[in-house]
């Protein structure tokens, strides 16, 4: 067989005995977000932002827990959550680097910036460096066109990038970083 068969019945992220939706997240959802909307389901996006903020990814187990909390089925939660690009279902590097590739940034030379990152760090789109520090995402317009070419590092805006300058910025990122600074 040329391809590897994966057992899709197994969750692709680890399960654990304590819940992913901690007491703190549950309380915030129940007290702050549920009163805002007529339905519980509407708190889905805020809930997943909180989970992303806490863990940097959404574990399969968290989807089951979210279903219980929101009172809908797990498949409905998965259906909605997988639609959104910012929600990721596998752990990523400590720094998520979103490089804009839309038209204003392309006109101002984003391709050279991307090529340089790929060359220096040895990663492609969606990949993480071996030390687990940087994950690269090529994304569509970030709404930073006047600063083109632009990028976000964990939600922090980076403006008027040059290939060498941006690689320097990335190299200088501290190795130890608070997990909460992931832009969610």
């Amino acid at each position: 067989m040329a391809w590897i068969v994966q057992n899709r019945l197994q969750p692709y992220t680890p399960t654990r005995s304590e819940p992913y939706i901690t007491e703190k997240i549950r309380k915030e959802i129940e007290e702050k977000y549920f009163p805002r909307y007529p339905t519980k389901r509407a708190a889905l996006l805020p809930l997943f932002h909180l989970i992303m903020h806490e863990y940097g990814f959404i574990a399969a187990q968290a989807i089951d827990e979210a279903a219980t909390l929101l009172g809908i089925s797990a498949s409905e939660v998965q259906d909605a959550a997988t639609f959104y690009e910012e929600f990721r279902f596998e752990p990523s590097g400590k720094y998520v680097v979103n490089v804009c590739r839309s038209i204003a940034c392309e006109l101002c030379g984003h391709e050279k910036v991307l090529a340089k990152i790929k060359e220096i760090f040895g990663i492609e789109n969606f990949e993480t460096t071996e030390d687990g520090l940087i994950t690269l995402f090529e994304v569509e317009c970030l709404g930073l066109c006047e600063f083109a070419p632009a990028a976000l590092i964990n939600g922090e805006r980076q403006c008027n990038l040059t290939p060498d300058g941006f690689v320097e910025t990335l190299k200088k990122l501290p190795k130890e970083v608070a997990p909460h600074d992931n832009g969610h």
Binding site: T39, L44, L45, F83, E85
Partner: peptide, 29 residues
Amino acid sequence: HHCYVHRGAGAYICGEETGLLEALEGKRG
């Protein structure tokens, strides 16, 4: 009158008015 911030999560289509409403209701946009 209450006013809340509701954050999207990276989907262009949610700028379409009814896509936005679906996202607001916690569904795919």
